[in-house]
Amino acid sequence: MKFLIDNFWTLTSTGLTQGAIYALIALGYTLVYGVLQLINFAHSEVFMVGSFFAMWTLNALASHEGHAGALLIIGLLVLAGIAAMIGSGITALFVEFIAYRPLRRRNAPRLVFLISAIGASIAISEAFGIFISRNILPVPQLVQPKVVLTLFGSQIYNMQVIIVAASIVMMVGLDQFIRRTRLGRGVRAVAQDQDTAALMGVNKDRVIALTFLLGGLMAGGAALLYTQQFGLTRFNVGFLLGIKAFTAAVLGGIGNLRGALLGGLVLGLAENYGSALVGSQWRDVVAFVLLIVILMFRPTGILGESLGKARA
């Protein structure tokens, strides 16, 4: 308890940083769930592929580090981010084409979608393990850790600010895209009622592919931020992170974009406070117990499900 009180603000800032990454990944789950009412189990691998793309880009370009200027670092980060987004986006589309579309054509039962997605997840992750490496791979961290401000006696690092800011920018962008653009309207229409939307001239398959792509782009952004924060990646890095992100999505109310943000931040904070209270080895247990408790009292998550509804 004393530890929690003494380090409250530090725990808060690291929790928010972690939560922002959860939230970005959670968006992918929530988008697909909102439109298809299916868990995209392979989304963890979408994230993983993104982190590998970020690693390759940075390895190729940032070999001579040390005296890089701020502008160069930003340029490299943007480049790596774009590469990660491309990698994740392609993977997400690949999953949709291989594991979802053929099943939709055949009107398969819901449980089977889950199995094919699990299959895709295992296959992608193992393929990376076999053909690339099973080891933990280091990723160059471009941003030199620096304390940018001290708040209530806790030090806040530049990377934390970057992660939270970048996530919020991406999420606001996505939210506006879904709310204001023509394509976004299509996504909401399909989320409300697939058949009616199709009758009104919405190309259902294209909208679903777009949904997967959007989730992939967010996961790509999360992948870059993750590699910059932790400086490593691995073929199975997506697994636990994926479960956590899904937990975040459910916490906030799956299918609800703002719920994903809220759920991610709540989960990140709760994990940090909880592990300060009962020991950091119980961190993941705290997250899952929190999930069970919240779902007991609020079975549709904090904000409720609503990609199709006016609120989203």
Partner: peptide, 14 residues
């Protein structure tokens, strides 16, 4: 083998 298993799950589902 796990990769093949994953692919087999997808094919089975389809």
């Amino acid at each position: 083998r796990y990769m093949i298993f994953g692919l087999a799950l997808i094919l089975m589902s389809i």
